[in-house]
Amino acid sequence: MLLIACPHCGPRAQEEFSYERTTDSVVTTEAAPDAAMTALFTRENPRGVAEEIWRHTYGCRGWMVFRRDRISHAISDIRPLGPEPLA
């Protein structure tokens, strides 16, 4: 089970998080149909590093993105996703 350093809460067990998708399978509403379906159904599944979106669903509920090596499970470059906090 992964240990994920939530940008808001610090290191927490994977069971508090939910995996969303890789950044390259994000489909915007502006995407053309072919591109959207490719992103959804013919995704890369790299044997190596992928950029993944996760949510601390059973914690702070914040969203984040990080790079994960799918062989060693090493996690790096973690940063929050979402609107800028109000000044």
Binding site: V26, W63, G82, P83, E84
Partner: peptide
């Protein structure tokens, strides 16, 4: 989850 995803990931702006 969907509303949060759209708000935070697709359109944080």
């Amino acid at each position: 989850q969907r509303l949060s995803y759209v708000r935070n990931v697709l359109r944080p702006d």
